[in-house]
Design a protein around this nucleic acid. Structure first.
Length: 159
DNA sequence: GCCAACGTTGGC
DNA sequence: GCCAACGTTGGC
């Protein structure tokens, strides 16, 4: 079992959207970065735990938790000419982009802000706090996960 | 295979 | 909205 951090813009799709989906589950499509794609295709597995991170918004930071309920499979939006994620160079026979399904687990009472995350001990290696990071899918070390989770308390929902 | 131009990300 | 950082593209 591994830990991850998924970035999203809450104005487009945030933790509240996920919580309101049927079965509180949604496919995480639209990732168009090769390094992130490799994680989705090869390494993200069912049962993995995910921080949902809100970017480009008022309250930047980790908003809650989700769990992977389906491992990597082709992102269907790449085949849809109507989609903003359409990729004419991709084909169902040789798909370029992948996605996973995640299910809502809990929403923090308060977003754990990026400013606070940067002050936490022992997370210097987390891609999020490194300068110029642009990965939308990144691994989180187990120790980092526990540090971040502790910093996010108190929180609501099951644990 | 180099690298300049371009587009995107994302914090501020 | 600005702009620095970064990834991708395409001409050569």
């Amino acid at each position: 079992m591994q830990y991850w951090l998924f970035k999203t813009e809450p104005d487009v799709f945030g933790i509240d959207h996920l919580a309101n989906r049927p079965q509180q589950t949604e496919h995480w499509d639209g990732v168009r970065n090769y390094q992130a794609r490799n994680f989705l295709r090869d390494e993200v597995k069912v049962g993995d735990q995910v921080f949902i991170y809100h970017s480009s918004c008022d309250q930047i930071g980790i908003a809650g938790l989700a769990e992977v309920v389906r491992a990597g499979y082709p992102d269907h939006s790449q085949f849809d000419p109507e989609s903003k994620y359409f990729d004419p160079k991709s084909s169902p026979e040789n798909p370029r982009w992948y996605m996973v399904d995640v299910q809502f687990r809990q929403k923090f009472t308060r977003v754990l802000p990026l400013t606070k995350i940067k002050q936490l001990p022992g997370i210097q290696e987390l891609g999020l706090v490194k300068k110029g990071h642009r990965l939308s899918i990144m691994p989180v070390m187990e120790q980092e996960w526990h540090t971040l989770l502790a910093a996010a308390e108190p929180r609501t929902g099951i644990s």
